[in-house]
Design a protein around this nucleic acid. Structure first.
Lengths: 170, 170
DNA sequence: GCTAACAGGACTAAACTAGTCCTGTATTTT
DNA sequence: AAAATACAGGACTAGTTTAGTCCTGTTAGC
């Protein structure tokens, strides 16, 4: 289900490196080296992040890229929006009128609500958490009875460990 | 950002019709007629839903499709999983080892957590809500300060209206 | 003025999506 | 038994998207 593009994934890896040493600018070549992603690709990612306002660039010799603001103020939504554009879950979210079914379709509203729910969830995950440096909490099993609200709180607190996902939630 | 496929969207429209009259089986042709989606496409969608266990089929004359269980017990995740497979947000969620960066990449964990957060959010939206029949609540503006937890509660209660999304959450 | 480094866009190959169609099988009706 | 209805499964095509590369221009430092 629901996939983010590979480039978006790369973006978080690159941003993680930038977050680690936020003081100095890093050239695309340096970042390519640090992340083991091909230079042209890193370059493409950085340009998108720059346009999205997540990194600041300085040209010329000794130039490079830096985070535009503290890692704690950059959320997963920001990264996805910068890399993939503010596209919605369905066509009708972003381009009303483009779907022939709008008259008969009664589920459009709902997808928009789901869309918002997802954005909210993504907004609560900061780059700081994406880099893994705040996940020091105890591993905690996800029980079937846990509500979304509890989960969101746990996610924010960093008490969930990834491996509990495997095999699916259902 | 994050898109569901058109077919998944169709699936909810088709399921909505099935939910409306859960007693009798509906043929693919009937459903195509009711939804204004082309027959071969409806057919494809229904086959996927059948494999996913969301609808039950009966062959032969007077056969057709019915919901396999009450609409309240079918969530958005179920629909997405049935239509698009249990693919994760990133490659490494579903196919560990397929990514060259796993050694250096420290954000994999986090995407998996985000993935889980999204699954949770989607799990709390039932087909009943997707059909729009439970969204009778008062429209309510989404303020910037609203937490994910509050949002999830509001979503469940159906007090959020879709149009509040437009222009983005940020 | 030479070199380092970003900016912007063009381009290609591969993968995925949407949509259609065909052949087969099960069930009911006549 | 035959005919009609309806699902099952898979093959196939066209179009779009994604990933990745490359080239040309511009800006800043030494």
């Amino acid at each position: 289900m629901l996939r983010i593009s590979k480039l978006t994934d790369y973006a978080t890896v690159v941003l993680a490196v930038l977050a680690e040493d936020a003081a100095a600018p890093h050239s695309a070549a340096q970042l390519a080296d640090a992340t083991h992603i091909a230079l042209p690709t890193v370059s493409k990612v950085l340009k998108a992040l720059q346009r999205g306002g997540l990194v600041a660039s300085t040209r010329g010799a000794r130039g490079g890229y830096q985070l535009a603001r503290p890692a704690a103020n950059i959320s997963a939504v920001d990264v996805i929006d910068a890399m993939e554009g503010p596209v919605g879950l369905t066509e009708c979210v972003t381009h009303p009128g483009s779907c022939d079914l709008e008259a008969t379709c009664r589920s459009g509203d709902a997808w928009q609500r789901v869309n918002l729910a997802i954005r909210r969830a993504l907004q609560d995950v900061t780059l700081l958490e994406l880099t893994g440096r705040t996940t020091t909490g105890e591993a905690r099993a996800v029980t079937a009875g846990q509500t979304a609200a509890e989960f969101a709180a746990a996610l924010r607190a960093g008490t969930l460990r990834a491996r509990t996902i495997e095999g699916g939630v259902q």
